[in-house]
Computed example of a mutant assay.
Amino acid sequence: MACENQTFNSGFILLGIFSNSPTHIFLFSLVLGIFTVAFTGNVVMVLLIYLDNQLHTSMYFLLSQLSLMDLMLICTTVPKMAFNYLSGKKSISLAGCGVQIFLYVSLLGAECFLLAAMAYDRYVAICHPLRYSVLMSQKICGLMAGSSWILGSLDGTVEVAVALSFSYCRAWDIPHFFCDVPALLTLSCTNTLLFEKMIFICCVIMLLFPVAVIIASYVRVIVAVIHMASEEGRRKAFATCSSHLIVVGMYYGAAMFIYMRPTSDRSHTQDKMVSVFYTILTPMLNPLIYSLRNKEVARAFMKLSRKGKSGKQITR
């Protein structure tokens, strides 16, 4: 097959995941519903944590950053997918593809490190409660969140620069609903083995290193919780930590499945289904998991709702 690096003058075609069959129309409507819930849930979480003074703690600051990342992640893929499906136009420009790659890789990487920071926060809160205000001060918490954003952006910059430097064959049909690096590599005319190894090394750093921090933190947490004298204290600690562990399990499991397999072992169908999980479903589930299992978030929501109702009554 002839190969030319003409993508700079044209672009790619996103094949998507939906057709015009009744089943796929229903599934597309379902995805839009999930997007709406995810968008609303994460916006509400960010606003609650920002507006409620009692939630101005390190744990909730990190949680607000997670919600912000999830909000940006779902807005990176779903609106373009919906526009292409509804308009019948499947093309995406080179610039648009590069922006998508940069944003979702950066956000995925940033979430990896942020989840590790959240695990460390729980470790300090449970194992060193008297030193919590020192070990998780506003400055340290800000540095953790800022470092997560910076490290994720560095990963995104490297991957988009290398991925778009390859020559691609004339068939520029990406078997995906967004510009995903593994799907893009299957179209390359050049040997991408070195880049695949680089992605694997990045995944070891971006995924396995934070996982090691999370495991080490929660081993210490579990030991400390088991030795707690208070039954109420154990219950509260397990409730808080279990929410975070559920999110970690969903997120890291899907990310490792996508990015730590060689191209030869990939199935486009499997990759698309798993991508739907971590780019659409997970951003919806995160705020639900944290809000439904957290009394302080529920209290803040009820307080904000009462203020809203009072404001409407006054205006009337």
Rank of each mutant, 00 (worst) to 15 (best):
V37F: 08
I74A: 05
F177I: 01
L68E: 00
L15C: 10
S305D: 04
S310F: 07
M206A: 13
T240W: 10
A237D: 00
E4T: 10
L143D: 03
G152F: 06
Y123K: 11
Q65K: 12
D265E: 11
S19A: 01
M206V: 11
K80M: 11
T36N: 03
I101S: 04
T186Y: 04
K139R: 15
S167D: 07
R235Q: 06
A82I: 10
L151H: 08
L143Q: 13
S29I: 11
K309S: 13
S133L: 03
Q138D: 14
C169D: 14
S64P: 04
E159T: 12
I280T: 06
S58E: 03
L107D: 02
Y251V: 04
L94C: 07
Y218P: 01
H176C: 09
S217D: 03
D180F: 05
A38T: 02
L193T: 12
V225H: 12
V44H: 09
W172K: 15
F35I: 03
T315S: 12
A110R: 05
H24S: 09
V181I: 10
V223A: 10
I150F: 12
H244R: 11
Y168Q: 01
S310M: 09
I150S: 08
H244I: 01
G33H: 02
C241T: 01
L51G: 02
G311D: 05
L71M: 12
Y290H: 15
L103G: 04
C97S: 05
Y60G: 10
L207M: 13
G88K: 07
Y259D: 13
I34T: 00
A216I: 01
F195S: 11
R299A: 09
H56S: 11
Y60A: 07
S243D: 04
F238N: 13
F257R: 12
I214N: 03
N9W: 10
C189N: 08
S147T: 11
V31L: 09
L187W: 00
D271S: 02
E196R: 14
I201C: 14
S64F: 06
V276P: 03
T192P: 02
G109M: 06
L47P: 01
R266Q: 03
T77A: 11
V105P: 02
A239T: 13
E231L: 07
V105G: 06
N5M: 06
S67R: 08
I174F: 07
F195A: 09
M260T: 09
V124R: 09
A145W: 03
G311W: 08
T315V: 08
